[in-house]
Design a protein around this nucleic acid. Structure first.
Lengths: 345, 345
DNA sequence: AGCCGCAGTGTCATCGTTGACTCCCTCATC
DNA sequence: GATGAGGGAGTCAACGATGACACTGCGGCT
């Protein structure tokens, strides 16, 4: 198999006795070419299998038609859905997606930003690790627009699209806590990110609205293992271990809120194993509405996150920002919907 | 905010009264530069915030340090894990990942290949739609190595890394079907892809080994909805609808195999609702070992897929292929492990 | 002293495409 | 028939980096 050289504009031009520039104009739809030669050129380009070289084009035009997508962990179903939505929306607009995974590590995030700078992407969509707030400054300095997704770094002048986590949790807890519910626990991730903070804030707000003393309540943190592998960030086992240690027939919450539906699996087991029942003794409220939630016994009440809308909105916002770098900064928080099922009675 | 021009080699060179070429040599680690000037250059480059332009580099070198990853649906947990593993392995080798999603559509797949050609990626990892077998030829013609993942298109001379689905299913079914099991049903996806074919083949092989008449068995296909959205490809509801229609106390399989664990959720409900029990009346064998499987009631026996290993192996293979285009074609099928739990008795 | 070799630099061309500019010819106009 | 306008095409430079090659000294050798 001969190492076939790639077909260039010149190849097409030489075949037809034209200049490379004319071929370029013809193929990019400029109007300084007669329709007859354009037809010739298009036909010949197709015949030779001409494919434009995007690097050469980027080099001279300064645009790449590539968007960077920085994600902490694609196995997180919310981010997986986000990736799909972002890719689809970018594709529709003619952009390609360069995917960078940070695994929630500082160092990877920095390297990702570096890669994006080398590439000179036209824009970036990113879920920040949030352990440092200045990591993304390099992009701003290079005039590359950044839209933060899900996690907000305030004060950096970046656009943001996320979910109104605090209200979602607050409203859901109030809704789900019927009279008689006094002890409410929250089973959280052990991460220093704004979404966790927002869930805790929503939880507290609910306690206030319900008039429940904060002392009766508890925020538990499931130790986070940095999954270096390609696995789900949340392990039901970890939630189970923590819950099983604390829940006894004499000491248990009336309502348990979990940071995700996978943790709820662990809680179900812990509750069951000490002879209690969901929802009679312990009501459970999940988060994320993963597809299995409706099929648990009892079916899990949870909060559905609009991942698809968030991804689409983020891309739309980014494209508008690329088109007009001077438009005012935007911060959008989409509402999340409570899905009531049997686990809350 | 002034539209800050990007810092180039020339900028660094001019500052120091050197030529651009010397700066290039210093920064790329060539040995024709004195250590003293190299130190000067490195310091100045850092001070100015120099970032190499990858497009310029690609243009002249012909290499991009980018790998294309073509996936049908990132919300499929197996592919999500694959994405993570591929990205991590590529990152470790200094490659970036361009992500293209096909949504199992012909047209998108073709566009993806086109994009990869424009980009001149150094290699491609792809899950093929398999509705046409020649879509990937363009890449081969351009001497871009392709490693097929999970789904194999034979006869195209492409490297392949996948899972030995047929043996996994065959062995698992034989293992799980204790004496007394006569009627075995398989609940499949309705897709014309090789993995589905392999599961069916494994199923048939198991029937033969068990000496069960094929007439007593059934392959059911859950109608596939093309999820244009960013959602899971498998809906428990669909499996439930199909299973609930066919399973009655008088007419039910002794063992039900499902193409994925989400379908098993639907089967659980269908079995339960007609007054039967898992595993006493109907044993259930899932596929994929999704994290909730261990937490179902009863816990689901299923097959664990080595997504992480597959992704890593695929990247390793691709890199070796890039290094040596003439090495013989490789086809690897990783074994999958049966995880026995209560749903099979 | 004269020559060679080599480390350390600079110069030039090149990758493929596009933008700015120039050129030429035709056709309409007076 | 001279003039101008303008469509259609070509020429040249440039984007930023790198490879090939040329050049400059300096030290060591004969």
């Amino acid at each position: 198999m001969a190492r076939s050289q790639r077909v260039t504009l010149r190849d097409v031009a030489d075949r037809l006795g034209l200049s490379a520039n004319t071929v370029s104009r013809a193929l990019t739809g400029k109007d300084q070419v007669s329709e007859s030669t354009r037809a010739l050129i298009v036909a010949e380009a197709k015949r030779l299998g001409y494919v434009p070289n995007s690097h050469a084009r980027s080099l001279v035009s300064g645009r790449t038609m590539v968007v960077g997508l920085v994600i902490t962990n694609p196995s997180n179903p919310f981010y997986a859905a986000l990736i799909s939505a972002v890719e689809r929306q970018c594709r529709a607009a003619g952009y390609s997606v360069l995917l960078l995974v940070t695994e929630d590590s500082d160092e990877n995030e920095e390297r990702a930003v570096q890669q994006l700078l080398r590439f000179g992407v036209d824009g970036v969509l990113g879920v920040a690790t949030q352990s440092r707030s200045d990591v993304w400054d390099g992009l701003s300095e290079a005039n590359i627009p950044v839209v933060q997704i899900s996690r907000d770094i305030p004060g950096r002048g970046l656009d943001f699209v996320g979910i109104d986590v605090e209200s979602a949790i607050a409203d859901a807890v109030v809704r789900v806590a019927r009279p008689g519910v006094r002890r409410i626990w929250l089973l959280e991730e052990d991460l220093r990110v704004s979404t966790v903070a927002a869930r805790i804030a929503g939880f507290r707000r609910a306690l206030d609205e319900l008039g429940v003393a904060h002392e009766q309540s508890l925020v538990l943190k499931v130790p986070t293992r940095r999954t270096s592998g390609a696995s789900l960030p949340w392990r039901p086992d970890d939630a189970y271990a923590l819950a099983a240690n604390l829940i006894t027939p004499d000491n248990h919450p009336d309502l348990m809120i979990t940071a995700n539906d996978y943790f709820a699996l662990g809680v179900y087991r812990a509750v069951r194993e000490c002879g209690l029942a969901v929802p009679e003794d312990v009501r459970v409220l999940g988060y994320g509405d993963h597809p299995f939630a409706a099929y648990l016994q009892p079916a899990l009440t949870t909060i559905r996150l609009p991942a698809d809308e968030a991804g689409t909105a983020a891309v739309d916002l980014l494209l508008r920002r690329i088109a007009d770098p001077d438009r005012p900064r935007t911060s959008t928080r989409l509402p999340a919907e409570l899905i009531e099922r049997r686990s809350t009675g």
